[in-house]
Design a protein around this nucleic acid. Structure first.
Lengths: 348, 348
DNA sequence: CTGAAAGCGCTTACAG
DNA sequence: CTGAAAGCGCTTACAG
């Protein structure tokens, strides 16, 4: 079936048309529509009626240009090449949903863009006055982007980042309580009697989130008086495949362990799957603990215990902090509390 | 730590500033930046240098107002109350990612908004010239929204919908080959020797996607010469919980069945979980087949067989079709091919 | 409370 | 190829 919609185009009505129909000046139409309280009741009614009759709505571009208020935030999500078909890390998807939700409630528009790792970078989302400010998502190895972002700073463009928290960098990083979350999770494993816990993830300064989780891992050991074995600290990328492969390597090398703490659920899911493939029982032989609380945690069998990142709160803090920066208000760096979620995969 | 960014505000440079610095007219700056080929090499260079020096970028709002080209699409996602914490159905998340990806490649901006079921509806996303057109996602019971959308038609606003396909409605609905996908899947189950296949989902006209899948389910039976038992056609909402509950009811009522075809992976996952809870083996006792190919299909154990909806192609078709409508070009209604993905859950 | 007027920062015929 | 000029559709002091 072929359709043609050419003839449906017609001139959009402007505030001048409404003014004529309502019998007032164009300026009054504008007032009635942008600040209804500023005009008299009768005028307001006539203007509203006329607007409804002509299907009029204000041209948002003219308003933004003239008023200099954009009322829009840009969410820049970094492409996750590890995820293959789906260009976004599954953890960020619900966070995006929550941001859309909260921004919608506050009445601010959300411009969303996927930033290719290769590309020239959409730092001009703010520059070109598309948005008042930017939320960065998924820039896990954030240091790579630091110089690009420096450009934003010189222009005074407000932005916030979710994930890595770098207090020494003069801007706003919002993240979960990674150290505390990891600490609680690993302490739980130790309390269960686990002694040889694999740390699965990238514990380098480049990924400060994961490094913090590593610190929590270490602190739990110290407090429990258990000395972690260096050969159980596995450096690997954040994908299910890498998690699975890392565990298989440990098994191949006959390195014994009775628990896995993965810095990400993705990794933990991979770990469970290769453990099971090798005939090991989770949690009987090996307890597994993840981080994030992906939706899939309750799909896998046994259900994955994890440290929940509160995406709803994170969304609110991100949007509110950005709004404060935009308005030039003082802002505090915040840590979003995490929550230990015990399911079947860690036993006990 | 408290920060104050008030003093960072300064006047944005305009094309006039660039003109002065480059020694050309403002009009020439505009040309150099919007159609570089239209100015001489030397001028272009001077303008670019000046722009770079002053960190200049064109004010997108002024450009949109003046040129009347918005170059933006709005993606309106309907809130999914069934999903609890996460306001968006998991199936749409990857589709959103793909739309962001493809739109980004085409250089069009994406405005994203979550539409509350209760709210007044953001039909004015196009009206107010925020966007050239709208992509609707997640309006499964689309008929509810039909009259609201009627308003778009009167204004000649282009839009497309993913999901339900309603040929009788004069606009553009883009969906997967639901009938064919379901047919192939159910034919596969029948070929495996399954005779009593549960249809899990809402096979009403209100949800045309699911009704189409029901037709495919029926056709497979007819062609195999198997008469479907009406008591195996279960009407239920699209959530994991509902799927689990429906299966438990069947079990409680001692209705026998050897396979489940669910109109959605969400439902299939719920089905597997309650089957296992009741001590049944999937796929030995009961084969299970879903629809969508959620990421979680390979997390559940046994991995879920399903009919894959091709979100990447869907994203492209949605964006391209909308672009054609915007340009007033003829457009065809398309069906996105599906693909049967056999995993462990259906045996054989 | 309302109107007349200026102007936000661009693009695009129109001349040359 | 370039410049002077008009104008996109609003908002907002400024008067009254």
């Amino acid at each position: 079936m072929v359709k043609d919609n050419k003839k449906m185009q017609m001139r959009r009505p402007t505030s001048i048309d409404i003014a004529a129909l309502a019998g007032v000046s164009q300026a009054t139409v504008s007032r009635a529509l942008s600040r209804p309280a500023s005009v008299s009741e009768g005028v307001r009614q006539r203007v509203f009626d006329a607007a409804a009759k002509l299907n009029y709505t204000v041209d948002i571009n003219a308003r933004k240009l003239r008023s200099k208020k954009i009322n829009t935030i840009a969410v820049l999500v970094s492409e996750d090449i590890d995820q293959g078909d789906n260009p976004i890390n599954p953890f960020f998807l619900p966070l995006i949903g929550q941001i859309m939700n909260y921004a919608g409630e506050k009445g601010v528009d959300v411009l969303m863009s996927l930033q290719k790792q290769s590309s020239d970078w959409g730092a001009d989302y703010g520059f070109s006055r598309r948005a008042d400010g930017i939320i960065f998502l998924g820039y896990r190895d954030f240091e790579t982007y630091l110089q690009k972002i420096e450009a934003l700073r010189t222009v005074g463009e407000p932005w916030v980042v979710f994930g890595p928290v770098m207090p020494e960098t003069p801007n706003v990083f919002i993240g979960s309580d990674n150290e505390g979350g990891a600490y609680t999770a690993v302490a739980h494993l130790l309390k269960l009697g686990r002694k040889r816990i694999v740390f699965l993830g990238e514990a380098s300064e480049r990924h400060s989130e994961f490094f913090e989780r590593y610190k929590g891992f270490m602190r739990a050991h110290t407090e429990a008086g258990v000395r972690p074995d260096d050969s159980l600290a596995i450096d690997c990328f954040i994908s299910r495949e890498e998690g699975a492969a890392a565990i298989e390597r440990l098994l191949d090398d006959s390195i014994t362990f009775d628990a896995v703490f993965a810095v990400t659920d993705l990794l933990a899911i991979g770990a469970i799957q290769s453990l099971q493939k090798r005939g090991l029982n989770v949690p009987k032989d090996v307890s597994v603990m993840g981080f994030d609380d992906l939706w899939a945690c309750t799909c896998i069998n046994p259900a994955l215990s994890t440290v929940r990142q509160d995406t709803k709160t994170a969304a609110q803090v991100l949007v509110d902090t950005l709004a404060a920066l935009i308005d030039g208000e003082p802002v505090e760096m915040t840590r979003i509390p995490t929550q230990l979620v015990i399911r079947e995969s860690c036993g006990g």
